[in-house]
Design a binder for these strands. Sequence first.
DNA 1: CTTGCTCCTATAGCGGCTATAGCCCGCAGA
DNA 2: TCTGCGGGCTATAGCCGCTATAGGAGCAAG
Lengths: 148, 148
Amino acid sequence: MEFSIGEIARATGTSVQTIRYYEKRGLLREPMRNEGGQRRYASADLQRLAFVRHARSLGFSLPQITDLLELADHPQLPCANADQIAKANLKRVRERIAALRDLEQELVKMLDGPHGKSGGSCGVIETLADHQLCLHEKHKDLATSHVE
Amino acid sequence: MEFSIGEIARATGTSVQTIRYYEKRGLLREPMRNEGGQRRYASADLQRLAFVRHARSLGFSLPQITDLLELADHPQLPCANADQIAKANLKRVRERIAALRDLEQELVKMLDGPHGKSGGSCGVIETLADHQLCLHEKHKDLATSHVE
DNA sequence: CTTGCTCCTATAGCGGCTATAGCCCGCAGA
DNA sequence: TCTGCGGGCTATAGCCGCTATAGGAGCAAG
């Protein structure tokens, strides 16, 4: 059974460009080509792509997935590594949740706080302008953290 | 009172490059220059930068902050707009928290689940390889969502 | 006058895609 | 056989919010 790139894209809910991108990044092996130069995938390739997408949906980064694929390809390697990667990911996720919850609290305070209800001026703008309020360093690393 | 870029950087916990980036993006006005061509900032500029940083720390995007600054600059404009921006931001934050909590659950399941404890093979790898498990679309948009 | 820090512009890189341009391929219908 | 259309191909640029680098110029102290 051979599939075109569009077929495995549809099957896995991935865009065609993303599949080519994964190939360039080394996550997917270079597939066979038909006589016209188009990619032809086998079932194993489809499985591999599904693995990648599942891992992405769980927030693993492409380098992490590269490592996980390596472990999947060589079952004799110790599973502890996979567990460590998953645990590192879980840790990151929990840190983000904590950071976002702080953020949520601040936003709620901003919207419902004393300024918000008072007649004339904008509570939101006032809160932002008062930079005394932002000197706690809680959100220090939010600017560079991503959910992927 | 005039400040160099390094001074307002230190005062607001911003990098010098980031300040120049904000200027290029139109968040900060082009400041005066001294005779040597270096930027010289007034107190108002410092205030404005602090506003931007405070808003960033609360997860507002640069376009959102552009709008908020517009509202801050023109107090006669209706505050409802600022509230709407803040509410939109709060909504986004809450959606992210919900998505990350789902993710956290999945990761915990993956690590503590039946596979994890069973003797020989890697629970984590097996879970990822079994793409039946990933057909629920819960995490659909995580790949492109950012915390900024 | 030299040292060493800051400042300047311009450009490239991060992650994980997405979108575009400009071409080729294969198949269906008239 | 021609024509059109939906795919496929490569290469490149863009998104966000920075960060880092190269290669130079300014500036204050010793």
